[in-house]
């Protein structure tokens, strides 16, 4: 790293030297920890500093767009965002690759993968989502909202908040948002496993086909995760988009022009039909829980995105002010 660290919370203008100068040979692979949209993720150790890192391998195929724009955008965003609750991209390294000459001067023609080097985190939130104490939950929620507030202030939507994209470290003390940009997978193999998992946290406006959406999409996902912490099971485990919507409407009521002006103009509104009880009864399933927590969940899971609470207001909610 060269230059000074940007002050916490400010836009990070510091670049990541000597990025690109090193190859993946500078790391010793320890184990595979996951599978991303573009390739595998490894736990590795920097041979020189001994520091642990997570290496995300970006497999570059010969797609039509050249170097994938999605990855370029993710790198751009991660370099811009500098916050204690957002995963830090330390550098980018390339695989040594093989010289791949196109007529003579072959030194600069290599073909290889690139690796995004992230700080190492112990595990993801999925692992603790169904067995955390109320004080841990509050601690995680606060950090999640702080990270998200920072993104939103900087005009960045995460768009794929879910347990697997929230990483935990420091014995459960630290939470960071991860997986920016690769979240929206355009799977080439036609599998939609990823799609289904994400579905559970997808807000009604997206399910109804809105293309013009804002920060509130992330808040919905946060609300679903918050509820899942309390219930110790997913709140809306839909298997199809249709089923996802029915599960939401069953608890949050059926949307109409009265509770959500403009909803009838959304592309898929006409395809949905009211299920029998159309009144909102979300609070009923939380009758045994801390009322401040339930109040907050209730304001995060409002159908109309413009009425949904913002990350900033959520952080000011009574839930975070009261002590356990």
């Amino acid at each position: 790293m060269d230059g000074e660290e940007a002050p916490p919370g400010a836009l990070n203008l510091a670049d990541y030297a000597p990025a690109g100068a090193r190859t993946v040979d500078c790391f010793r692979r320890i184990r595979k920890i996951g599978e991303g949209t573009y390739g595998e993720v490894f736990e590795a150790m920097d041979i020189i500093t001994g520091e642990r890192a997570a290496l995300k391998k970006i497999k570059l195929d010969d797609g039509k767009e050249g170097f994938p724009r999605q990855i370029l955008r993710e790198i751009k965003l991660l370099k811009k965002l500098d916050h204690e609750n957002i995963i830090r991209l330390k550098e980018i390294v390339v695989s040594p690759g093989t010289a791949h000459g196109a007529g003579g001067s072959d030194d600069y023609m290599y073909r290889g993968d690139i690796y995004m080097v992230f700080e190492y985190m112990d595990h993801d939130l999925k692992k603790v989502l169904h067995h955390s104490t109320p004080s841990q939950v509050k601690y995680y929620m606060e950090q999640l909202l702080k990270g998200l507030h920072y993104c939103h202030v900087n005009n960045v939507l995460h768009r794929d908040i879910k347990g697997a994209n929230l990483l935990i470290s420091g014995g459960g003390k630290l939470l960071k948002l991860a997986d920016f940009g690769l979240a929206r997978p355009f799977t080439r193999d036609g599998s939609f496993t990823n799609h289904v998992i994400t579905l559970w946290y997808r807000p009604p406006e997206l399910l109804l086909g809105a293309t013009n959406y804002a920060e509130a999409v992330d808040i919905w996902s946060v609300g679903c995760i918050f509820a899942e912490f309390l219930l110790r099971k997913p709140l809306f485990p839909g298997r199809t988009e249709q089923e996802q919507l029915s599960k939401i409407f069953e608890l949050c009521g059926f949307p109409n022009e009265e509770n959500w002006p403009g909803v009838s103009k959304l592309p898929l509104y006409k395809t949905i039909r009211p299920t029998t009880p159309t009144k909102r009864r979300l609070r009923d399933i939380f009758h045994n829980f801390d009322s401040h927590a339930v109040d907050l969940i209730d304001r995060m899971l409002i159908l109309n995105p413009t009425e949904r609470i913002s990350a900033h207001d959520a952080l000011c909610a009574a839930y975070f002010i009261t002590k356990m």
């Binding site: 919370g9 400010a10 836009l11 702080k146 768009r159």
Partner: peptide, 23 residues
């Protein structure tokens, strides 16, 4: 992932420490 241009930075103390507003 949505990313608009510009955008001011506000003074909410959520990050802790000093924050430089964009201007």
């Amino acid at each position: 992932l949505g990313c608009g241009g510009g955008g001011g930075f506000d003074f909410f103390g959520f990050g802790g420490g000093a924050v430089f507003p964009i201007d």
